[in-house]
Each structure stands twice: as C-alpha cells, then as structure tokens.
Amino acid sequence: MLATGTKAPEFELYSSPYQKIKLSELKGKKIILAFYPADWSPVCGDQMSLYNEMEKYFDRHNARIVGISVDSRWCHLAFSQHNNFHFPLLADFEPKGEVASLYKVYNNETGECQRALYVLDENGIIRWSYLSPVGINPGADGILSALEQLDN
C-alpha cells in the first residue's frame, strides 16, 4: 500500500451513471477510500452497509467515505439502490483497476480490488491505511480511531 504521509494520487471516476468525481474536488474534507472486491458479494455488502449507517460519525470528523471497486457504474447503481446506500460507489472500471493499481491495492489474480482502507486528511495526504484479509470485513473501529487521531 502507499505509505502514510504521501500525497494521495489524483483520480477521476464515475460516481453515478452520468457523473464523474475527482479526488481533488473533495479537498477540505477528510476522505475515507474503501476499496473492496465486488458488489453483491456477502462480505462487501456487510461492510458497505455498516459504513452506510455511519454518516453521523463521519460528519463529526468532517469526513466523507467513498467505496471503490472494479464494477461498472450501472452495477454500482443497482447495488446502491438495493442497499439504500447514501454515499458514492466509484467505478474503477475502464481502464479496469487503474486507480486500485495506483493505490497498490489491485489483485491481478482475481482482477478485483483488495479489501483496503485509506484515510486522507483535508489536504489529501494519506494518514492511515489498512489492508484487510479479503474475506474479512474490517469493521469501522480502525477508521474511527484514525479520524479521532487526526482531530487531536
């Protein structure tokens, strides 16, 4: 994974069928990048559903979360609607896994993102990261501690 203290590489990805989002547009807020293997797989559903309940906690720290996988924007739309998600899922779809590769969390064997978390500060500097075993939902305790440390 990319080292803590380095600048998070810029990217631009679809966040909905007709809209793209640039990382630099999110400057001024702490950003949690949640790379995950695939829409619809059981663990990812649990993980994203958990983050979906946490808006209030992220707000408290002036933070926003985005999910990133190699699924297409239409797949994300269906997954998002099905689970009533209130945060964007970004489609690292074409070229496939380019952003995940940039962040060193692409799995060449499966062709999916690894299950990895980055926390960026308001200036887009990586302040915390975590690589989870692929089948294990890392929960939110690590993210919350990282956000708290940044605020202290």
Binding site: D46, Q47, Y57, I136, N137, P138, G139, A140, D141, L144
Partner: peptide
C-alpha cells in the same frame, strides 16, 4: 450501544464477544 459496537469492531450482526474478545 451502536457506537460502542463500532469501537469494538462489530462488522456484522450478530457479532459476539466472549470474555471481552471478538468471536470470529
């Protein structure tokens, strides 16, 4: 309770803790 769960690393429901440690 919910917040304590987040801090304890709850990652699904149900999540169990036995003698203070998460049961995986």
């Amino acid at each position: 309770d919910f917040e304590s769960g987040l801090r304890s690393g709850v990652n699904r429901t149900p999540s169990f803790y036995i003698n203070g440690n998460k049961y995986e």
